[in-house]
């Protein structure tokens, strides 16, 4: 029993030996690199991706997702502004060269109506067809239950995509 108490005490109040300090420094360095640069925690603010991602929920942005591949259609991606502190979470609905169009809330890519199981709210958007430029993807939120003018969506250069949510 005494031995157990000693172990618990040692766990919470470890002796400051050189081995412990090296171990603690390595853990801190790993945590800084991993959570600061590779898999950064994000707080989702806003309703543009509801119901897939709720306002106020917490996730992680996995920044190695597009190191060796390009964003694909239907991927949810993080689009950066000037840096990494504030980003947009959107879904890729078309890739370069494709034509995007909205007709009475229905998405058409290259003239073909797309099935969008992630869209749960009614939408009445109309957007004339436009072609996605080279090295760009077209991104939109899942929640289109607002006037088209009030929704932040459009074509983003792939170099602005810094990763995607972990789940």
């Amino acid at each position: 029993m005494r031995d157990g108490n000693k172990k618990i005490h040692q766990f919470f109040f470890p002796s400051l030996t050189s081995k412990f300090l090296i171990r603690a420094s390595l853990v801190a360095l790993f945590a800084y690199l991993f959570f600061g640069h590779l898999c950064t925690p994000i707080l989702i603010k806003g309703q543009s991706m509801e119901p897939t991602y709720r306002n106020g929920s917490i996730n992680f942005c996995w920044k190695l997702r597009y190191i060796f591949s390009e964003p694909k259609k239907y991927d949810v991606v993080a689009v950066r502004f000037a840096g990494n502190k504030v980003m947009l979470l959107k879904r890729v609905i078309a890739v370069e060269g494709e034509h995007v169009e909205f007709r009475n809330g229905k998405l058409f890519v290259d003239g073909k109506e797309m099935d969008e199981p992630y869209v749960h709210y009614p939408c009445n958007w109309n957007l004339p067809p436009r072609q996605v430029e080279k090295d760009c993807v077209y991104v939109v939120g899942d929640n289109r239950n607002m006037p088209i003018e009030n929704h932040h969506f459009g074509q983003a250069p792939t170099k602005r995509i810094i990763g995607g949510p972990l789940w």
Binding site: F81, A82, G83, N84, K85, V86
Partner: peptide
């Protein structure tokens, strides 16, 4: 304002890119 990128391309001039919320 977030994510400041400040550059001084010439004397007396600062160019800043940032995110405004």
């Amino acid at each position: 304002f977030y994510d400041f990128n400040v550059a001084f391309p010439e004397e007396g001039l600062a160019k800043v890119t940032l995110t405004a919320k």
